[in-house]
Amino acid sequence: MFKPESADSLPIPASAATPSLIDGPELPVDVEVALESLNQWQLAVKRFMRHRMALIGLAMFCFIVLVAIIGPIVAPYNPIDIPGAIHQGGDGPSFTHPMGTDDAGRDVYTMVVNGAHISLAVGFFATVIAGIIGIIVGSISGAAGGVVDNLLMRLVDVTFAVPLLFLILVAAVFFGQGSMVALILIFGILQWGLIARLVRAQFLSLREADFVEAARAVGVGTMRITFRHILPNALGPVIVVMTLLMASNIVLEAFVSFLNFGIAATEPTWGNALSNAQNAMGDGNWWWAFFPGMAIALTVISINFVGDGLHDALDPRARL
């Protein structure tokens, strides 16, 4: 019976699809995998470059990072300066103070620029910690299975048993003590469960994937399958989720600091600026809360755009 081929997406006749399996020259498995994964990443880059929103997001994010790095150097005032007049409510935006001043005479623009690196650092490092722990635990759980998997996943269940904010706040209040490093550790240690679950799920589904079966069939070892075949393929969705987690960590840091449970009030962070602003709400000094909040919102929007582009680029099947 003639069946030209079964895969709709590959318009290649049967003769071309399986040459090496019959009598063709044997290709070393590694060469093929390397070529294929290179193509996969190149394709992802190509798809990402075509995603207009993602590019805008990336440009915005780069700009924010730039501000975080060189902003404090070129800013007209230091965070400890008191360039404005000290009076109730502060001053609105003006030529000398484009984002106004607070009631202590501090420049809001200086606060926003100096807060950038703290917010970005907390968001980035907390996510990296969560990512590393999550990928390790998820891989172990997915590759080992059985009792190990069961125990690790029950541990993850525990972190999901209450809304995470509750635990994070407890940890921040009792352990944070106003330290940025402590806050990063708390966010990272409490949030890896999400990523571990995702990595594990990827492992379970990839374990049954055709290319893994094929690798197993030609005698590739378990370790090699795990690290060369499954993990690289599982990373796509993980990177997407980590991007979104970074955005949410930036908001979280701001909120925790806003409640005065986060980074010491003396540090110029966006959350602390908002916290000060809240005390003065009602005096009509909107600029005080508006600009630090906008800074958070723009950072988060830019990261979410990038995340969306990565999602489309790394997981084309899920594209809608």
């Binding site: 909120f255 908002l274 809360a289 909040g293 919102a297 988060v300 979410n304």
Partner: peptide, 14 residues
């Protein structure tokens, strides 16, 4: 989706 909830609340109050 990207707006911090608490900041949105502050702005709505304002």
């Amino acid at each position: 989706y990207s707006l911090p909830t608490f900041w949105l609340g502050l702005m709505l109050i304002e």
